[in-house]
Design a protein around this nucleic acid. Structure first.
Lengths: 134, 134
DNA sequence: TCGAATTTAAACACTTCTGCTTAACAGATT
DNA sequence: AATCTGTTAAGCAGAAGTGTTTAAATTCGA
């Protein structure tokens, strides 16, 4: 059974990178092209991000589904929706408007284009008023 | 780009499970066999474990490689090796013999069969004397 | 012990991932 | 201009993951 997401090749590259080597230097050491080192490093970072997202999901299991921010929605209208839904459930959202928008964008930058929601975002809330997105 | 490791199917099963449903009940809901629900749930838990291991690896990046516990080694001889190697590096291991063995086993149970190491285990140590295995 | 719940194994199509090459492109530094 | 660094894209072969079915084993409470 595989232990982690990272392949031996990916770990190798990350270790050399941590030591400050350039992609070209690493390419020479492991005998391949610098383009390939770039690809491998990128894949490694993606895998790490994916691992983080996976564990992030566990929080949504403890949380209740609050609402769905539908594709096309104006990002600035999201807080209003979220506050109103949370009030219905008798929970106070932990974040103010600005913080909420930032959290929303930071959580997964890919899902927003400027002020627009590109893809449906599910919003979860726990009893502490913490928000999670999935 | 995929966000997490878990497929929609796997998330679905985990959510129903969290609600206390049996595999048979879930199978009826998502219209498949209970055996399949079992497989999906198992895959989900494996993915979560893999995500944890992946992030665990990041610690080994900050840590230095201490030694390798080779396949076939007696688990009870590991502490001696580790203490002696750490001393060479001028770092004091944070754990006593008993705790060390327990950490070693708990870190990844699959790599030990009774008192024997089944598969090479890399040992890393940081400046605080914390140990990581990979 | 009976039956329900859970787990495991094997096999199958299908999809995705991985490492790799080649080639091109953008930014900095020299 | 020439060089070094990092990125990106297309394509390819081999490996691994996913959902599924079917069938057999195991656990466990009543």
């Amino acid at each position: 059974m595989k232990r982690g997401l990272l392949t031996d090749r990916q770990k190798e590259v990350l270790r050399y990178r941590k030591q400050g080597l350039t992609q070209q230097q690493i390419a020479d050491i492991i005998k391949t092209s610098k383009a390939n080192v770039c690809t491998i490093e990128k894949a490694a970072l993606e895998n790490i991000a994916r691992a983080r997202d996976t564990l992030e999901f566990l929080y949504t299991l403890d949380a209740a589904h609050l609402c769905t921010l539908k594709s096309g929605l104006d990002l600035l209208k999201a807080p209003e929706i979220i506050y109103s839904e949370a009030e219905k459930m008798g929970v106070k959202v932990k974040y103010d408007t600005i913080t909420l928008i930032n959290r929303l964008r930071d959580a997964n930058p890919d899902r927003f284009r400027g002020r627009q929601v590109r893809e449906d975002v599910e919003v979860y809330i726990n009893e502490d008023g913490d928000l999670y997105f999935g």
